[in-house]
Computed example of a mutant assay.
Amino acid sequence: MNEAPIRKIIHVDMDAFFASVEQRDDPALRGLPVAVGGGTRGVVAAASYEARRFGVRSAMPSVTARRLCPDLIFVKPRFDAYRAVSEQIRAIFLDYTPHVEPLSLDEAYLDVTHDLKGIGLATPIAREIRARIRADTGLTASAGVSYNKFLAKLASDQNKPDGLCVITPDRALDFVAGLPVKRFHGVGPKTAERMARLGIHTGLDLRGVEMSVLERHFGSSARYYHDLARGICHRQVRADRERKSIGAEDTFATDLSDPRALGEELDRIGATVWRRIAVKDDVAGRTVTLKVKYQDFRIITRARSLDRPVRDEAEFVAVGRDLLASVLPVPKPVRLLGLTLSNLSRGAVVADPIAPELPLR
């Protein structure tokens, strides 16, 4: 009699968010293939659906994107605009539940098991939220509804763009069975390859593997994979989800070897990171990490942890400079530098989904 109610989880994912904001704000871009980011040697941060038809995807090198879509239009990112829209969307979510877990500027989980409006059903809530997003922002969102986070996220991607998918408990096993395991949250490319070598390609394949076999090949993750194949996920929607690090990096127009030029670029990147840190007054971190990608694409990192939080931008950049000095002279020209602050203090939350190599220029 005291059994907990079935949870009602919604995953809302904006459609091609950055690119859609650019097309909304500049009518001349509507209907055209648009990529946010890029530059001569950068990467795509977001691509419009017109660009995706040519195979252009986020995190793709801009040179590859241009080759796939010669008419691709690159626009510089405007994170202030994206954050403003994200805040509008977040306000809509909070009208229905305080249990909102943002994953980035453009997607979030909502637990509406007990919604504030007393609607009682997740599907009409999802419809109402999507309609309000369109009315308030002029943008479209896709939503997935189910009884756990794993299935809700899978569902939100099922009918994109501008779609809604509901996975009820009686549909879950069949839905999961037909999906490739590479779409499962927590199954990255390397894990998917290992599963493929074991003959595991779909959820149905995964469900048929004995737990002992999963444990032998995947160790402590075996139970998690075993549960996913059965539509089971115990992860809670956490409104206080904390960001683990804040950083930025840049791919240079030409490879650099000169220590002075590298130092100047690091100063610029460090200033960008600190601006992101300064957005939230409660952000503090103790570990500074330098990332270096050489001409041959080999990557190294160097890190230093202080016994207290980094005081200010000057100290943050100075530690980064010291880390850079430890790898000088560089054995090969440098293609990319990055700087990150981690070991964030309790309560430090920053939603800033910067693409791995989004140019700062």
Rank of each mutant, 00 (worst) to 15 (best):
P5N: 06
I246F: 11
A192I: 05
R361Y: 13
A4R: 15
V310T: 04
S86E: 11
A141K: 05
K8V: 01
G55M: 10
A19G: 08
R171V: 05
F316R: 05
A45S: 15
R183C: 10
D322E: 10
A355R: 13
H201F: 13
A28S: 15
R243L: 11
H217S: 12
M60Q: 12
L151T: 00
D162C: 01
E50N: 03
L94K: 11
G163A: 00
D15Y: 02
D205G: 09
F79E: 12
K291T: 14
A91Y: 10
D136W: 12
I9W: 04
V34R: 06
L358H: 15
V44H: 12
A314F: 13
T137F: 02
Y225G: 07
P33H: 05
A271E: 12
P189A: 02
D136K: 15
L154Y: 07
V145W: 00
P329Q: 05
E242T: 04
A355V: 11
R311K: 14
V327W: 08
I10Q: 05
V334G: 03
G188T: 02
G188M: 03
D296E: 03
D111K: 09
P27Q: 09
A108D: 07
A155E: 10
V166F: 07
D71E: 13
A28N: 12
E315T: 10
I133F: 02
A45Q: 10
V327S: 02
E265F: 03
A28Q: 14
H226F: 14
D258M: 05
L72R: 01
T123N: 15
V166S: 09
F150H: 04
V63F: 15
L290R: 01
L344M: 12
H11N: 10
T191F: 07
I125G: 08
A284L: 13
Y225T: 11
A135E: 15
T272H: 10
Q295F: 15
V350W: 12
G285C: 09
V100R: 05
G144A: 00
L94A: 12
G199P: 12
V237E: 03
D267T: 14
T289E: 06
L256A: 02
L139M: 10
A59S: 04
Y109D: 06
A253C: 14
D115P: 04
G199M: 08
Q88K: 13
R308F: 01
R308M: 06
R335M: 02
I246T: 14
L290G: 03
G347D: 05
I10H: 09
M211N: 11
F150K: 09
T97V: 04
V310E: 01
R7F: 13
P102A: 13
H201G: 10
N2T: 14
K291S: 05
L328A: 06
A126H: 00
A46R: 05
D80Y: 13
L228D: 03
S245M: 11
V273E: 02
F184M: 00
E315V: 05
L179P: 06
E22P: 03
